[in-house]
């Protein structure tokens, strides 16, 4: 059961069934929400976009859906939080394990990490959500923040 993720997932930082066309756009849209809500510094969005280009985070999952978990250095973060985006039509990211490979992503968790060790629960919960293809499918179907939280609490 996920307990840490729902606490870190601000309702204003969850964007569902979106129509973006580029990875940068996705990171920027949800990253700006994290900034507006005071979780990250004004340098965060650009740092996350730059880092995604150098060290991409696309993750092909077991059920065939592909997720991405953009993040950046802790200096750009004020307090830990999570942003989330689901995409109506997939957006191209690069594969973490082989950056030359482009992969169509449908689910994005933008991680605002402050201290790695302190956020181990969040990171482990994200990994266990991503490993559960039923939960991942369900997350993509949700239209409301409430629905997302309900699914995550079952995860």
């Amino acid at each position: 059961m996920s307990e840490t993720i729902p606490n870190l997932l601000d309702p204003n930082c969850v964007l569902l069934k979106c129509n973006y066309t580029q990875a940068e756009e996705v990171i920027s849209a949800v990253g700006m929400r994290l900034f507006k809500e005071g979780y990250v510094r004004d340098t965060f969005v650009q740092a996350a976009i730059d880092r995604e280009k150098q060290l991409p985070t696309g993750l092909p999952l077991a059920g065939g859906i592909i997720a991405a978990i953009p993040h950046t250095e802790i200096e750009h973060v004020i307090k830990p939080a999570l942003g989330m985006v689901t995409l109506k039509t997939p957006v191209t990211f690069q594969n973490m394990v082989s950056p030359e490979e482009m992969v169509p992503v449908q689910l994005v968790f933008l991680l605002a990490l402050e201290k790695p060790k302190a956020q181990i629960e969040m990171l482990q919960e994200i990994a266990s959500v991503l490993q559960n293809s039923v939960i991942v499918e369900e997350l993509l179907n949700q239209r409301t923040y409430k629905g997302i939280i309900k699914i995550l609490k079952q995860a």
């Binding site: 985070t57 181990i120 990171l123 990994a127």
Partner: peptide, 15 residues
Amino acid sequence: SCGTGIATSTVVAKA
């Protein structure tokens, strides 16, 4: 190791 040394490597190390 991972890109930033804080996110995915934390999950991997623990696992």
